[in-house]
Design a protein around this nucleic acid. Structure first.
Length: 508
RNA sequence: GGUCUGUUCGUCUAUCGGUUCAGGACCUUACUCUUUCGAAGUAAGAAGAUGGGUUCGAUUCCCAUACAGACUACCA
C-alpha cells in the first residue's frame, strides 16, 4: 500500500488568483479527493518586497467561492504547520548550510551591482543572458574563490550574502512527469540558483523542496513554466538525502490567451473578459482586475469550464458537477499542450449551469450577486420569476435586465413598436379584456390566455396582432417570456393597472 | 542565443496502429418552432503543420524541419 496522498497548492500572495492558478488548485483538489487524500494550502510569502496585504485572504475567499477549500492551511491548521513560509523562515537556513558543508552549495557575496556588471560584461549575441554557473562562478566573489579564512571573516563581519546551489557540470538529470513522461536535462544548463536570500528568506527553489518534504507531499502539480527549474529541485531532493521521498510531479499545460501566449492580465483588458476568480484591486499599484464572480459566473460553471480546459474523461460529457469531476478525474487524461481560453465557451458553460441549477439555489445566488435588486423580494415570487427567465440568461447579470418588469411597472413603453398598427378596435378590445380579466376566477396563465383569445374571436381580431401590444403593456419592450405567464406571475391587479396605464399613453 | 515543452476543424477536444464522411462541443450560416427576445430542434461549414522513416496498415510509434509557447532574477 502506498503512502496517503497529500497534495498542495502554494500560491504567492502577490496579486490576484488567475485562471491558471484556480485550475491548478482544482486539479490538486480533485486528485486529493479522488484518492482520499489531503489537500494542503501553503502560502509562499517569502518575497516580502512583493507581498501584497490582503492577498492571502483574497485567495482563501476565492477558494471558498469555488468550494474547493483546503484540508490544511494557515486558517484551517493541520499537523504540518505553519503553512505560511514567512513563519517557517528559521527552518530553511540550516538546510542551506547543510548543503554548503556537503559541498553542494556555497556562499556568494556579490553585490547587486557586481551581478549587474557580470551580466553586461559577459553578454554577447550568442549568450544574451549569461548565467551565474559553472563557467562564471570562478570569477565571482564567493566561498569557492575566496577560500575558507576570508569567507569566514566576511561571514563573521555580517557581510550580506546569499547561498547558491553548486550545479555540477555536465551531468544528466531527469524525472518522470505524470503528464509528460520522461523529461531529461543536463545540469550544465541551469545556473547556480540562489537558495537563501540575503534577507535570510529562502527562494522558491529551496522552500518548495524543504516544505514538500516536511509536509510529506506525495504529488506536486504546478504550471509548465516550472519545468525548466525542475533540475534544481531534483538535485536538492537528492543532496538533502530525501530522494526516496520525492513527490511525483505533474507540470500542467499553460492556459493561453486568444493570441496563443500565456494568459495574463493584459489579455483580460484587451479582450474584455475576466482573468481572476474574483475582483482584485492591488492598492499599491492602484490596479483593478475583474473577476468571474462579479461578472456573473456561477462557481459551479467556473470550476467546470476550468477543469475541462485541458482535461477530459474520454467521454463526450462536458458538464460536470464537482462530485462528478472527482469521480471522473484522472491525470492520464490531462492534455499536454496548452489550451487557449475561449470566453464564448466559458459563457456557454455558465448558461448551461444556470439552466441546470435549481431555482431555489439560483435565487440565493442572485440575492448574493445583486442584493440591491433581489434582497427584499418574496422568495416564492423570486422563484417563479427565475423559473421563467433562466433559460434566456447567460450570466447572473442578465437576470435583472430580463426580469426587472416583474418587480415594477415598466418606466417607458416602447409604443413605437405598436403605434403604427394601433386603432380604436384594439383599444376597445383591451378595455373589454381588462374587464373580463378582472373578474377571472382562477388567475392562471392558461385561463388568461383563454380569456384573451375568446375576446379576440368575439371582436373578430387576430390574436397574433394583439399579443405584441399586450407584451408592450406589461413588459415595456419586445422581450421576455410568454405574455400570459408574465401576467399570471405579476398578478391580476398589476396586470389591470398596466393595461390602464398603457391605454392612457396610447390614447394620446 | 541556449534549454525544455508542445502541435487533430477558427477554439476546447475524442481517437490508447486497423470498420464508418476522423466523432462531440463552442462558434458561424441556413431552416424549423415559438406570430416578442432568449432558448430549443434540424442541417451545413470546418482539422490530422511539413518531409522522411518503422509497419501488411499510421492522426496514433521514431527522426528531421517548420511553427508556437515556457524558462533563462536575491519573483514565484
Amino acid at each position: 500500500m502506498s503512502k496517503p496522498v497529500r497534495v498542495r497548492f502554494a500560491p504567492s500572495p502577490t496579486g490576484g488568483l488567475h485562471l491558471g492558478g484556480v485550475r491548478t488548485v482544482l486539479y490538486n483538489y480533485l486528485f486529493a479527493r479522488k484518492h482520499g487524500g489531503k489537500f494542503i494550502l501553503r502560502i509562499e510569502d517569502t518575497d516580502q518586497s512583493r507581498f501584497v496585504p490582503g492577498a492571502e485572504q483574497y485567495i482563501l475567499d476565492c477558494l471558498k467561492w469555488c468550494s474547493i477549500e483546503p484540508d490544511e492551511s494557515s486558517v484551517h491548521g493541520g499537523d504540518y504547520g505553519p503553512y505560511r513560509q514567512s513563519e517557517r523562515k528559521a527552518s530553511y537556513r540550516r538546510y542551506a548550510e547543510q548543503l554548503v558543508s556537503q559541498g553542494h552549495a556555497y556562499y556568494a557575496f556579490d553585490t547587486p551591482e557586481e551581478l549587474e556588471a557580470m551580466r553586461t560584461n559577459f553578454k554577447s549575441t550568442e549568450n544574451p543572458s549569461p548565467q551565474y554557473g559553472h563557467g562564471i562562478r570562478d570569477q565571482m566573489k564567493n566561498s569557492l574563490t575566496l577560500g575558507a579564512t576570508e569567507t569566514k571573516a566576511l561571514l563573521d563581519a555580517g557581510t550580506p550574502h546569499v547561498i547558491r546551489i553548486k550545479m555540477p557540470k555536465d551531468e544528466p538529470v531527469g524525472f518522470t512527469d505524470m503528464i509528460r513522461g520522461a523529461v531529461n536535462f543536463n545540469t550544465s544548463q541551469s545556473d547556480d540558483k540562489v537558495l537563501l536570500k540575503a534577507d535570510g528568506m529562502p527562494t522558491y527553489h529551496l522552500a518548495v523542496v524543504v516544505d514538500d518534504y516536511l509536509m510529506k507531499i506525495t504529488h506536486a502539480f504546478r504550471g509548465e513554466e516550472w519545468l525548466n527549474s525542475a533540475p534544481v529541485h531534483l538535485l536538492l531532493w537528492k543532496y538533502l538525502g530525501w530522494e526516496e521521498e520525492m513527490p511525483e510531479w505533474a507540470h500542467l499545460p499553460l492556459i493561453l490567451g486568444p493570441d496563443g501566449a500565456k494568459l495574463s492580465k493584459r489579455h483580460g483588458s484587451k479582450y474584455g473578459f475576466p482573468i481572476f476568480a474574483m475582483n482584485w484591486t492591488d492598492m499599491a499599484k492602484n490596479d483593478f482586475t475583474e473577476g468571474f464572480k462579479e461578472r456573473g459566473f456561477l462557481p459551479e460553471a467556473f470550476i467546470n469550464l476550468l477543469a475541462v480546459l485541458g482535461w477530459n474523461d474520454g467521454t463526450p460529457q462536458e458538464i460536470y458537477s464537482k462530485e462528478e469531476m472527482v469521480q471522473a478525474f484522472s491525470m492520464d487524461h490531462v492534455h499536454k499542450g496548452g489550451a487557449q481560453f475561449d470566453f464564448e465557451k466559458a459563457k456557454w458553460y455558465n448558461h448551461e449551469w444556470i439552466k441546470k441549477t435549481e431555482n431555489q439555489i439560483l435565487v440565493q445566488r442572485l440575492i448574493d450577486f445583486e442584493p440591491e435588486h433581489y434582497a427584499n423580494q418574496d422568495a416564492g415570487y423570486l422563484q417563479q420569476v427565475v423559473a421563467l427567465v433562466k433559460d434566456r440568461c447567460t450570466l447572473l447579470s442578465d437576470f435583472w435586465q430580463q426580469s426587472a418588469f416583474f418587480f415594477h411597472a415598466p418606466e417607458t413603453l416602447d409604443t413605437d413598436a405598436i403605434k403604427p398598427k394601433w386603432n380604436d378596435d384594439k383599444a376597445t378590445f383591451f378595455d373589454i379584456v381588462k374587464e373580463k380579466l378582472v373578474v377571472l376566477e382562477h388567475w392562471t396563465a392558461t385561463n388568461i390566455e383563454a380569456t384573451f383569445k375568446e375576446t379576440a374571436t368575439e371582436k373578430d381580431l387576430k390574436v397574433g396582432e394583439l399579443q405584441l401590444p399586450f407584451r408592450i403593456m406589461l413588459v415595456g419592450g419586445k422581450f421576455g417570456p410568454g405574455v400570459f405567464e408574465i401576467a399570471s406571475v405579476i398578478g391580476k391587479k398589476e396586470t389591470e393597472q398596466r393595461i390602464i396605464t398603457a391605454l392612457e399613453q396610447l390614447a394620446n
